[in-house]
Amino acid sequence: MLQKFGFTQYESQVYEAIFAQNEPLDATSIVNHSNVPKAKIYEVLNRLIDKGAVLTTMNGKKKLYLAVDLQSIILKIRADFEKDIEELKSYKIKRTYSDEHIWTLKDETSIASNIEQLIEEADSSILLLAWSEQMEKYRPILEQKEQQGVYVEVLAVGGLETSLSRRYSLIPMLEGNHLEPSQLLIVDHAYLLFAGIENEAWKAIKTTSKPIVKALTDYFYHDIALTQITKKYGDQLLQDEEISKLLARLIY
């Protein structure tokens, strides 16, 4: 039975042989009761001691062995398993190869899941542009990542209430300009996801291609610069017909 929980066949036989007796056994007796080869018995016993399944003591010059109660072993197996699960949750595997492919994604839920995963795995930086409705979904995890020391910078179209230190809010100023929602995420200057509406459905691309990541990083800061300029000089800019037409051609 113990073999299902990481014990070898010999370990299981030795444990059951000791446990079945009403008194401690020496190595010779354990060999007789367990059918484990004498040449292997001390190796097996030492492993069981290391696993906390067998206790040992000296009786004169003879070493005796006693099996730990099965319930105690069950509790230890459960505790070790839960500890391993927690360690696995925090374990990260980073790709070391360069993938120049551009991968496509469909379905709003799938895109949102990919964005959340990329944010969660960020080590150093997160740049995110999104409309306020989408941005609000990611706000808690963004705030958590900033508290963990990750550099977070966001541009929310429509505004956002958040504790983030580096946040920009764009309130569209041009009447009649029908804005199409989009989302741009750049993580660790290496991973990129860009999503938009096409035929009334969300579609996205995902890549680690360096030229594309670099180009859309520039695009992100272009939008922040434009946001700050229009915020400060918007009234003046809109009075200029030529500039007003140029602004109308942008996503704003």
Rank of each mutant, 00 (worst) to 15 (best):
L238K: 14
D107W: 07
N59D: 11
A201H: 11
I229V: 14
V187E: 01
I93G: 09
E16P: 02
E136G: 06
A130Y: 04
I18Q: 00
S125F: 05
E143T: 00
K51F: 07
D84H: 07
F7I: 08
D80R: 07
S132F: 09
S182G: 05
A204S: 03
E121R: 14
Y168I: 00
E146G: 02
A215V: 05
D240W: 06
H222M: 13
Q228T: 14
D235L: 06
G149H: 03
F81S: 09
R249I: 08
L48N: 09
D99S: 04
F194W: 09
K76R: 15
Y252C: 11
K214V: 13
A39D: 12
S163T: 11
E100Q: 12
A53D: 04
T207W: 00
T56D: 08
R139H: 02
I77C: 08
D123G: 10
I212N: 01
A215Q: 10
N35T: 11
A17S: 06
I197S: 05
S182T: 10
M135D: 06
R95S: 14
D223T: 13
L118W: 07
I229M: 09
P140T: 10
E143Y: 01
L25D: 04
L246M: 12
I85D: 04
Y15G: 07
D26C: 03
M135P: 05
K83M: 11
Q3T: 15
L250W: 07
R166T: 10
P24D: 00
E180N: 11
K203V: 10
S163C: 06
I49K: 09
A201R: 11
I141H: 03
Y151H: 12
L179S: 06
E133L: 08
M135L: 13
Y151G: 02
I251A: 15
Q147M: 12
K94P: 07
E43H: 13
T162L: 02
H178Y: 07
T57W: 06
I74S: 10
